[in-house]
C-alpha cells in the first residue's frame, strides 16, 4: 500500500469530548478540498465521534489506526461541490473529443492525486492535484488564454478545478467527462 500523504496534522492528545470534534471542525476549514487531515487523539470516544462527525458533515473518514494509546484518524476534506452538484462548469468535452485532438498535444491538467496519476495518465498530461491547484496557479499563468483540458477520474474533481481556474481568470477551460474512468486512449505510467 502506498501511504496517502497527510496535508495537516492536528494534535488533540489529552483532550476530552467535545474538543477533538471542535478542533477537527476548525482544522478542516483550513485545508483545501481533497486534502487529508490527520487527527491525533487519546480520547477513546473520538473513534465513534469522528466517524459520526464525518458522516454528518460529508467529509470522508478514510480510516483510523491506533498506536499505543493514540488514535490516528485520517479525514479527506470533501469538495463543497460534492454536496451541491448544481454548480457545474459549463464547458465540457467527451473523452473521444479529447482523444481525437491528442496528436496536436493539447494542454491537459490531471487533477487527481499523485498516486492515481502514477498508475496511469494521458501522455503529456501535467499532474496538478486538486488540493494543490491554487498554490500551483503561478506556474500555470502562461496558460490563461490557452485551451486547457482538465481531467480526473469521474469528471467531478475536474469540474471543481475548472471552476477554480475560471474564477482565477483562465478563459478557455474544458472539463473532460467522464475522465480517466472511461479512458480508452493511450496511457503513460510512472513505475519505480
Amino acid at each position: 500500500m502506498v501511504a496517502q500523504s497527510v496535508d495537516k496534522t492536528l494534535d488533540c492528545k489529552g483532550l476530552s469530548c467535545p474538543m477533538p470534534i471542535v478542533r477537527t471542525k476548525k482544522a478542516i476549514e483550513e485545508i483545501q478540498p481533497g486534502q487529508v487531515l490527520e487527527v491525533l487523539a487519546t480520547d477513546p470516544g473520538s473513534v465513534a465521534d469522528v466517524k459520526s462527525w464525518a458522516n454528518r458533515t460529508g467529509h470522508q473518514l478514510i480510516g483510523t489506526t491506533q498506536e499505543g494509546d493514540v488514535f490516528k484518524h485520517y479525514i479527506r476534506k470533501a469538495d463543497p461541490n460534492e454536496q451541491k452538484p448544481e454548480a457545474k462548469h459549463p464547458h465540457v468535452v467527451s473523452n473521444e473529443e479529447l482523444l481525437q485532438k491528442l496528436e496536436k498535444e493539447p494542454v491537459i491538467l490531471d487533477v487527481r492525486e499523485p498516486m492515481e496519476y502514477a498508475f496511469g495518465h494521458i501522455p503529456g498530461a501535467k499532474s496538478v492535484p486538486l488540493g494543490q491547484l491554487e498554490e500551483t496557479l503561478r506556474e500555470l499563468q502562461h496558460l490563461t488564454n490557452q485551451e486547457v483540458y482538465v481531467v480526473c477520474r469521474s469528471g467531478h474533481r475536474s469540474d471543481a478545478a475548472c471552476q477554480i481556474l475560471t474564477r482565477k481568470g483562465f478563459s478557455n477551460v474544458k472539463n473532460v467527462v467522464p475522465g480517466m474512468s472511461g479512458w480508452s486512449g493511450p496511457l503513460e505510467k510512472i513505475t519505480k
Binding site: 469530548c17 467535545p18 470534534i21 471542535v22 477537527t24 471542525k25 465521534d49 459520526s52 462527525w53 454528518r56 458533515t57
Partner: peptide, 11 residues
C-alpha cells in the same frame, strides 16, 4: 455546552 459545541462542530 458539550452538546451545543459538538452540534455546532457538526455544522
Amino acid at each position: 455546552l458539550n452538546i451545543a459545541t459538538a452540534a455546532a462542530a457538526t455544522d
